[in-house]
Amino acid sequence: MIRRRVVQIIPVIVLATFVVFGLLQLVPGDIAVTLAGDNATDARIAQIRQSYGLDRPFLVQYGTWLWNAMHLDLSRSYLSNEPVFDQIMHRFPVTLLIVGSALALSLIIGVPFGILAATRPGSFLDTAVTSVASLGVALPNFWLAMILVATFALSWNWFPATGAVALSRSPSQALLHATLPAIALAASGVATVVQQLRSALIEILSSQYVRTLHAKGLSPAAILWQHGLKNVSVTLLTVVGLLVNRLLGATVVVEAVFAIPGMGSLIVHAAVHKDFPVVQGVVLSMVVIVILLNLLIDILYTVLDPRVALK
């Protein structure tokens, strides 16, 4: 089963890389002319076309690009001429810290409230929790980020308003800088965890075998902790996979609000200035992270639920 899954992701990765490389084909007109800038001589354009391999057939370009990418060579930035891989590795830790903290916050806050709401469906607490969760899903995360900056950074000076510090340089400063962005990201994460966990747990708690457990005299607490949560852990794994995908998208906008030098600001800057290798590099690394994480989750499914392996 695990081997089959690993084999199955190879075409997924190939297709995803094809989409990432295909982005370049969407560029209207001749990329070399765009790159050469205004008033470039024909010789300069030809030189650029050759140095970036733009004169070769599409599939050859794709093959070369993929081969290099597999060897961690993502070409060089058109703007700074720095290797794209180095730029990404330089910025990745900052994004990882924010996204990681946001994911942790989502689970730490979301799981208890999801369980509380599911065990008392229809109660005042349930209504309150689900209402707040619906707000959290509908809330634009960058707007929440702006409100947090205006309140906690600009008015009250509790947290820095902008920037980031590397975890290796000063852990306390790094966490201080990451707090507000992580909260802004986590709002929708908490809401998603609550909603998904609640509906999955309600379904399990109203199923036939739980009724049997009640009938044989098992206490509601024992049913919840021994049977309910074991079955709901699969849902939780699925939610984690979904959340990482969403958080990686959301961090792009939230990083812009806090002027954080992470992956998000890298791709936005590159997209505005038509620095295609950087755009491709960031999209590629995010998609590979999501695919590999989903593979890991699929493998964990078989650990949690041996029936999956039999299929």
Binding site: P11, V12, I13, L15, A16, V19, V20, L23, L24, L26, V27, P28, N245, R246, L248, G249, A250, V252, V253, I267, V268, A270, A271, V272, K274, F276, V279, Q280, V282, V283, M286, V287, V290, I291, N294
Partner: peptide
């Protein structure tokens, strides 16, 4: 494969290529 792309990130990639 397509589901693995964070929506905003791919949208930024496409606008970067097609123009904002």
């Amino acid at each position: 494969a397509l589901l693995s792309f964070p929506a905003i990130v791919l949208a930024i990639g496409v606008t970067g290529a097609l123009g904002v």
